[in-house]
């Protein structure tokens, strides 16, 4: 586990900033072309999937909003937009993080990875993605990118987890279809695929 960034620390940071106060707030932030007077907006550069991306970010804008609506990375899903479901999970410096609950402005020195960045340059799926295909882990698929990212984070921290360890590591991701058993099968297969 990265010593600098933990899920708890992220949540505490978000609570302090008030970023997750309302579901709709970030949408206005993401799509607001009419900027509130006096607000500080600026162009910043963030490292997403190994590329430095310049993006115009509102002060209260969440990472999920930036990824989806500014950078077109719609693989990151918004299920609740208030830190309950995990559909928006991305990796920040290898740590599984709710992108709806962290401000983009706090990401300037971070390494962000989304589901779009997992495939190899030749198009091969990441072992977790391949394992999820083979185990038919997804059902509706809406939570799947978040499940994938949590599994990748787990396997980077622990390359040989038990099923029980995997269950705990994945527990921040809700699947309303109830495909937990199949996702855990996928995680354990990913261990084998390396």
């Amino acid at each position: 586990m990265n010593s600098k960034v933990t899920r708890r620390r992220f949540i505490k940071g978000v609570v302090a900033s008030g970023a997750a106060a309302t579901t709709t707030g970030m949408w206005y932030a993401a799509n607001g072309q009419d900027r509130p007077s006096g607000a500080v907006e600026r162009l910043i550069r963030i490292n997403v999937n190994g590329q430095m991306r310049s993006v115009d970010v509102a002060p209260q804008e969440t990472l999920a909003s930036t990824l989806r609506y500014k950078l077109g990375l719609t693989g990151t899903k918004l299920g609740c937009n208030r830190g309950e479901c995990g559909a928006c999970t991305v990796l920040v410096d290898d740590v599984a993080t709710y992108a709806c609950s962290v401000l983009t402005h706090s990401m300037k020195n971070a390494r962000i990875e989304t589901v779009e960045g997992l495939e190899s340059p030749n198009g091969d799926l990441h072992p977790v993605q391949q394992a999820f295909v083979e185990e038919l882990s997804p059902q509706c698929g809406y939570c799947t990118p978040g499940q994938v990212m949590s599994a990748v984070a787990l396997l980077r921290a622990n390359s040989n987890p038990t099923r029980e360890e995997a269950r705990h590591a994945m527990s921040g991701n809700i699947c309303r279809c109830g495909s937990y058993d199949s996702y855990l099968n996928g995680v354990m297969r990913a261990v084998q695929l390396g």
Partner: peptide, 13 residues
């Protein structure tokens, strides 16, 4: 299924 694990498949939003 590949579209679901890569995030490529599109939902309405």
């Amino acid at each position: 299924v590949p579209g679901k694990v890569t995030g490529r498949i599109k939902y309405a939003e």
